[in-house]
Nucleic acid binder design. Sequence first.
DNA 1: CTCCTAACTTAGAATACCACCG
DNA 2: CGGTGGTATTCTAAGTTAGGAG
Length: 921
Amino acid sequence: MAVVNPSNNPAMFDDDDDVPLSFKRTSNSLKTARPTPSKQEGSSGGAARPTPSKQEGSSGGSGNPARPKPVAHNLQKNGVTGASRPVHMKPLSSTPNHRPSGSGQPNSSAQHSSKGNNSIDKSKLKRPLVKDERSDDSDDEVPIGLRRKAEEKKLKRVDTAVHKADDSDDDDKPLSLKINSSKMSNNSVSKPVLQRIAPKVEQPDEDSDDDKPLASRLPNNACPKSGGNVSEDSEDEKPLAARFSKVAGSGNLKTASSSKGLNSDTNGQRSLGKRPLDNSNQTSLAIKKAKPSNVSASASVKREIKTDDNDNTPLAQRLKMGESSKGKPPAKSIVKKSPASAKDIKKLKGKGKLKKNMKNSQFSKTMRVPPGSGEGKKWTTLEHNGVIFPPPYKPHGVKMLYNGQPVDLTPEQEEVATMFAVMKDTDYAGKPTFIDNFFTDWRKILGKNHIIKKFELCDFTPIYEWHLREKEKKKQMTTEEKKALREEKLKQEEKYMWAVVDGVKEKVGNFRVEPPGLFRGRGEHPKMGKLKRRIQPSDITINIGKGAPVPECPIPGESWKEIKHDNTVTWLAFWNDPISQKDFKYVFLAASSSLKGQSDKEKYEKSRKLKGHIQRIRENYTKDFKNKDVTRRQIAVATYLIDKLALRAGNEKDDDEADTVGCCTLKVDNVTCMPPNKIQFDFLGKDSIRYFNTVEVEELVYKAIEGFRAGKKPGEGLFDKIDTTRLNAHLKDLMPGLTAKVFRTYNASITLDGILHEETEDGTLLEKIAVYQRANKEVAIICNHQRSVSKSHESQMIKLNEKIDELKSQMEELKADLSKAKKGKPLGYDKEGKQKRNLAPEAIEKKIAMVEGKIDKMEMDKKIKEDLKTVALGTSKINYLDPRITVAWCKRHEVPIEKIFNKSLIAKFGWAMDVDPDFRF
DNA sequence: CTCCTAACTTAGAATACCACCG
DNA sequence: CGGTGGTATTCTAAGTTAGGAG
């Protein structure tokens, strides 16, 4: 153990912080060239491989034969594979050093190809955006990962306590050391590692291995373990309890704004009362989901409706208000079961069980935790006006050419042709899958005997140009015209924007039925380009309160498919997805509604609860790293990865979906073992976003993964004995309600909480906001939230550089002037040849200082911009960071909440606004 | 168990909007 | 003032998690 400590505790490392962690990247550079990845696998992969074959061959397991697409082609293109770059960076300085240099990578590398490869390929494919260009950007390289480094430093300190040790530095070299040791410790493990990379693409460069790094700090993570750092621990655990209580208590309810608003507005239906807050009790919990809930809610309401009230009031106030409120029980009634359809009922039952009761009591308010209860009832009364349909198609009559000749098309045919024509300047337009699917569906509409038979002979340019003209026309409209148009639309839609739930007026999220179009699947989606047909009223099922009037069908002569009265669900309407018959498209309330707010709060409470169990859970899985039972070992390792890297669970996917993976569905070729104890991940996750990261793991994990890979062919599953159902069933045994996704929320929120607490210092408002942004960025990196590089990024960077250069030359001139002035010489002539006015040296010095400041600021802006070009900060803010952490921090540091949350977020997080300033996640 | 369905949450891209700026 | 660049909002695709049927 002794050892352990060290390891665990990060302390050590931390120290270093200062030091640099160095990144070590090791060799990387070299690598660049190579295609790296491939290697591993190997062989197989190699270039040569034709991929497919392999797979197939391989066991059937994985491969599905069917998959269409030839990835292969892509491959080539993409090829890349190599991409990898390491991520992480070092701490220090930042900057990118890393970048690879040349990289070169050619995409060609062909590596992977095959399926297994998919990953690779795809990656490229997919998001090429990101980088594609790749090469260039240096950043790319760096990406996210890098950034972290910098932060790390900071973090480090933070973590330190905890982590310390881990990481970083060590990483680099020492790994072994550390690792080992650490490992042992085990728990420790937890976190250390990490790093995330950013994948994005490309670049192979490097391989960098470098990456490795890891270090990431993770905040939290730290290990619990040992008592060592107490700090950590302390935090962890305790807090919860403690906090909880308070939190709960306090928070809850906000009083709601007064009711006013509600009623008034709108329709007026009845008066609604305010919000019910109530939720409090009630709660319905859903069964499954469990939502205990309670409370809060209110917020939302206010906003809209009334709005006023609160709105105006500044946060602060609101905050305060919160307390008072209450939570009470208003409206809702409670329970009863669903009256509605019996059918539904069944569901209920099921669910109900779980949670079961506790319930009601309003007392709840006090408690934090919500009681669940409920049997699954989500509302008592529900009124709304249904959905609005897109306007019917208006033929433009512009004729496209076929084999050079204008072609007559019926409105239906023209509509689909236009959908395609308009996408000319998107990436989809050049994708074979997209074109094939579009053309196949379009031909069905054209009919067998239509002259149009070959896509190659089609020329959609006339329609595309018509579209450009229309766009231009729109742009030319005066602002008044635009405004009038907008108001017109608003007027038409207003009645659909609201619903009244248990007497409270709430905003509806998506009341517009999706218009027809060509399916834009992400990544290499096999169905991209298929026609998404127009949805009719007869496709739509409406869910509404039993006594409420059924919304009138907006299209005369038609009627809804079905009317339901199911109060165990929150949807107002749904229709079958025309692209995938088995999927549905639902109309839900907006994020600002109390129904959503309540479940959001429950989500965070659950992940907070994990904090109290995390140590035990880590010990538990660490023990199983060497379990004799392969299934147990796989569950242990999968849980470790989900905990440490915040990976998604990874459900199985059908062949008619893009080939992406999550933890449970990782393929052996998505993982490379790099001795002595690093694992490189390279796969396409949700939305075909590439996850590329190299992390140091515990020795036992490393061995276990090597074992899981042994004897398998590319394309086979790494975790062949488990799936998300099994994994979640196991997690549930460890903590009620625990599922894989809870770890992501937990990791994200605790990281934010830790960084904010550690790094916020007295300073200017801007400095504080910068700290928040850094923390936010850290979380985005952990969660691998990426965005594609904007089209104008490069040109913007060039402009910035030009400006900086100009300032620099100005600076040179000023310096020259200064020295002349000091000597009493005339300053001479300016660029225009005009005589310069002589200035006192002091005046020139002042100018110099000013220019210097400008240059510094621009350099800083440039760096941040480059740094964030592939990082999406919004997703974590919206879905993973407990808003109470942010609100409490804002209160403590006097940062106006609107500097961090936009209007939508403030509305969405109304339930969190009255949190105690001392709140800790 | 496995498979399939249902209901919700999470995501990035596309658009709309808006404050600047030369 | 029209273009820009950044942010906010909209849109809808793509995941997760349960529960039920067989």
